[in-house]
């Protein structure tokens, strides 16, 4: 059974089909990139997979459960238990330290554990910045805190929406390297990106256009390491 399966999924706003009859599957442990121009339906798809929106038509099976039929309360629980989110703009709580931001995800999931949160920050190389506030961290560091927050509850899927969109090349490399390690650990990754170099690192790339799945490419030489076209 696939971890995620979209069957003929559409999202319709009046006359606009933000997603139009899209079907896809993502296996457990797979690293998938989703690309496409602005307005192609990437964010809509992310919101539906991330349980923050519901499909107008079709089925969305996450771990065998059709989440398109679930109530918003139930979607909140699924999001909390199964999904780790990474955003382009980091979205860290400004008045909490890096450590507290990671613990925030634990707080809503189960029980906050300072030691475990610190370990997660250690994984992303920020143990020494645990007591710093977001305003005291660089963009790359903030995104790494965001990664630590996403992985702290051991989610089934990590959904990253333009995770390197606001980062320079060096930090982009660090974040992609973190994704590679997560993938090695068996975490399923779905990464929405505009950046072909980031997309090429994934095992498979899905390209959306006008709300439809345009084509799909498989990276036969998958290594998980970013290759810059100089």
């Amino acid at each position: 059974m696939s971890l995620l399966e979209l069957k003929n999924v559409s999202k319709i706003y009046g006359n606009l089909h933000a997603l139009d009859n899209v079907s896809l599957t993502v296996e457990k442990g797979e690293w998938v990139a989703i690309m496409g121009p602005s307005g192609s339906g990437k964010s809509t798809m992310m919101n539906i997979i991330g349980c923050m929106d519901k499909a107008s038509e079709g089925e969305v099976l996450l771990d065998g459960v059709d989440i398109s039929k679930e109530s918003s309360k139930s979607l909140t629980n699924i999001r909390r238990d199964k999904i780790g989110l990474i955003f382009q703009q980091f979205h860290l709580v400004s008045y909490l330290t890096a450590l507290e931001n990671v613990m925030l995800a634990q707080y809503y999931h189960s029980i906050p554990d300072e030691k475990e949160a610190l370990e997660a920050l250690e994984k992303v190389g920020l143990a020494d910045r645990a007591k710093h506030f977001p305003s005291q961290l660089s963009g790359g560091e903030q995104q790494r805190v965001c990664v630590a927050r996403a992985l702290i509850n051991y989610p089934e899927i990590i959904l990253a929406d333009e995770p390197t969109g606001n980062l320079d090349e060096a930090n982009e490399e660090i974040v992609v390297e973190l994704f590679r390690k997560l993938h090695e650990d068996g975490t399923t990754l779905i990464v929405v990106t505009h950046d072909p170099e980031v997309a090429e690192v994934a095992q498979r790339t899905l390209v959306l256009r006008n709300g439809k799945l345009d084509h799909e490419t498989v990276n036969k030489n998958f290594t998980g390491h970013i290759k810059y076209n100089l």
């Binding site: 991330g50 909140t76 999001r79 979205h91 809503y108 927050r149």
Partner: peptide, 9 residues
């Protein structure tokens, strides 16, 4: 929004 995305009821 972030808190809700992280699973806050």
């Amino acid at each position: 929004g972030l808190r809700k995305a992280l699973g806050a009821s």
